[in-house]
Each structure stands twice: as structure tokens, then as C-alpha cells.
Nucleic acid binder design. Sequence first.
DNA 1: TTTTGAGTTGTTCGA
DNA 2: GTCGAACAACTCAAA
Length: 480
Amino acid sequence: MRPNLVWFRDDLRLTDNPALHAACAGGAQVICLYIFDATPSLRQLGGAARWWLQDSVAKLAGALEKKGGKLIICRGDAPMIIEKMAAAGAVGEVFWNERHVPAAATLDESIARLLALRDIPLHRFNGSYLNPPSAITNSTGGPFKVFTPYWRAVLRHGVSATPLPAPEKIHKADWHADPQSMPVFPASPVPVSMPWMDRLSQSWQPGEKAAHQTLETFLENALHGYASRRDFPAGGTTSRLSPYLRHGEISPLQVWHALEIARHTGGAPQHDADKFINELIWREYACHVLHHFPSLSLESRDRSFDLIPWRNEPEQIQAWQQGRTGFPLIDAGMRQLWQTGWMHNRMRMIVGSFLVKHLLCDWRIGESWFWDTLVDADQASNVFGWQWVAGCGFDASPFHRIFNPVLQSERFDPKGHYIRTFVPELAHLPDQLIHTPWKAPPDLFEDNGRICYPRPIVDLAAGRERALNALKIAKSQTTY
DNA sequence: TTTTGAGTTGTTCGA
DNA sequence: GTCGAACAACTCAAA
């Protein structure tokens, strides 16, 4: 009997892992594989997500070892590596959980064909979403282009599966890669060390165990009142589960079930649990939409946006990236992103609206920056979110809905807790001035005669008018 | 096929 | 200070 191969991808966990569970059934021998995939057709992971992934893969290796298994870690083109293992006669049957990012799904199809040619059975599972993207359809069998009907369809469809336990014991296959043909990494896969990585490790602990601790903390501390408190960026008002979901250290099914239990044991008011489930379904919806419209990664869904004369001013883009726009809330958000690899949901909308509308920059510039700096960077959610905030995507925010960073600041960070955390040079300002430091006397900003906080890089009213006019002209020139 | 109601997260202006 | 309307129409989902 040749051993089963479990190829781990965006599912770095032992619990509720359908592919691993099936491969281990009946005490079969198992090879566990992770590939740092260098296939050119895949979008290269950004820096922050790569940091997370390295740590998470190392954690997975440790967890598998405790169960008797062993994770083979290698780097290269996935099709070539799988082909080599198959050719060496190492593999009986192959198990994986599906990926849905279009480029990855295409790659997986080609690997499936390769295995079929060798008569190697392949077992594919759904582990990363409550519903695979093609499972939910509208009344004509097509994709949903509006969120709310999609959401209703998901609730109608229901979730019947229960999360799977981790395998009790993993029987490690007696197989060793030939180091000549397959470069295998011993434990810590890619010995990279960059100064910014220290910052990330101060904010985050990747891995399955930490994922469940994060969920527990959320259920205990922040679920109650989530519906109203989640909009405030300061303090622990959100779950912070996004990077764990992204890398599959926890499954959405596990999250769903934990919420159902909290609901039924009175752990949370219905509308708080509903609101959180709603957010989970937005994640599903982004996947649904990208699956059916793969061109969205590169193209605005509303093609009139192609006619907007984007300014893409390099100095302004850099000020935005570095948190030096002169608007305290924007700068706090962008610095939170840089320092911690993550940004609060509402802040993502506010900084996105500011970049696209007030600065009139192409949404793809923001999308690339987020891709590189977010530990939870996910192709579907990132592209969907940016097209939404720009106003060109599915069920998007209307373009004339422009967030005013000062009003948002006064409304959602009234005491300036969030601003003071990430823009310390303003921490000494009184509450009335923290949102509009340009109204403060200049001497409040001087540090040894040096101005230490920039003046606003754009006039909000003028920027808003410019954006509205640009879209109006683009719309009038578009023929559909 | 036609019709109807609805559509995440906002801001500004004038009464 | 509060409230409603305008913003710009348009597309989608379902009856």
C-alpha cells in the first residue's frame, strides 16, 4: 500500500480539516506536504502574509509531529514537485482542500489532470468556506451580484456540517525526499529576518492554537455589544480572526459553530451574533464574486472608472502609505497597518475612500499596498473591498459616498484613543484638537524647532468636489 | 416578459 | 441642534 498524500495549502490546521481527516481514516499511512509555491502564474504573497505563513507552517509542522506525523516542507513549482513524488511511486492517493482564487484553482485543475494521467485517485474537499463559491446560486442558477440576496440564500441553505476533530494519531509514511531532485527544508522553512518582522511578532501569534484562543477571547470579551461597538477602532472591539481564517488555522465552520453555541447558551444577544455571522458571509461573498468574475482582480467592474483621469501623485501616495497625510485618523490607520500588519475594518474603508476619492488615486494602488502589508491579505477579500470602497465593484458603495476623515474621527474615535496610540506626536493634544491639529497653535507641534506633524496634504472640500466631477464626466463619456 | 422594490458601513445643505 | 432630501441614476432579484 502506498501512503496517502495530504497537500496543505490555505488550511494550516489539524482540527476540522476534511482532507487530513479523510487521509488518516482507517489508520492509513500519510505523507503531509507543504509547498512554498513559486509557480509563476500565482500572485506572489506580500511581505506581511509571508511572515505569517512561515510561522504558521512551522507551527503546523510541530502540531503534526505531536500526533506522530511529519510535515515535508519544500519550495518550488507545485506541479513539478507533485509530479516528482508521483513519478517516484511515493504516492497512493492524494487529498486536498480546495482553493478558490482563480489562478490557484486553475493550477489545481492542471495538477488534477496530471494525477489522473497516472491513475492516482484525488480527493478534494471544501474546508476554507462555509459554502464553496459555486454552491449558492440565484433563481436562474447564476451568481448573486448583490450581497443581501446572497446572504438570504446562504441562511436559507443553512449549514449542516459539524466541525471534524483532529485525527487522534497520524501514521507517518516511511518516505524521504531525494535531496537531489527535491529541495526540502528541515524545520523553519525560509530563514528570512527583516526588522519589520519583529513588529509583527509583537502583535500576532500565528498558528492553530492561537486561532482558537483568539476566538475564545472574542466570545468572552467582545461579542456582547459587537453590533454597535465594532465600528470603534480603539480597543478590542473586533474578533481579529481575519489572518487565521486567511491561512486556514481556523475554519469558518468552526467559527460558525462557536457562534451558534454562544447564541443558544445565551452568551450573546441575537443581533450581536447575527452581525458577526453577517461579516463572515461577506468573506464568502467576496469569494463567490471573484470565482464567477475572475477579471475583477485587474479590472474595475464598472468600466466607466477606466475614464477617470487618476492623479496617482507619487508624493501623495507615499504620504498615505507612511501615515503622513496630516489627517490624524488616516495616519493612525496607515501606521496601524505598517506596525501591526492589520487594520480595523472601518479604518480600511476610511483610508480607502481617502486615497481613491480625495487623492483621486486608482484603487489598484491601494490594493497592492494592502496586499503587501496585511497579514490577512486575501485575493478575494482585498480586491472586493477595494472595488467596493472605490464604488466600482459589486454592490459597491456609491461613488458620491465619500467618507470625511474628520467627521469619522469625531464619531468613531471621539476621545482620540486610537489616534493617540498610533500617532504619538499628537498624544498631548486636547480632545477638541486631536481630530483637526491644523487648527491648533503651531507651537504645539514643534520639537526643537522642527515641525513634527504635517499639514493636510489635500483640502477636503476641494478633493471631494474634484472626485465627484471626475466621475460625473467619466459617466457621461461612457457608453455601455 | 414585465414590473416592482430594494440596495453595508456617508455627507452636505437648507429648512 | 435636528431632520429630510439630494447626491446619480442603475442594476439586480424575485414575484
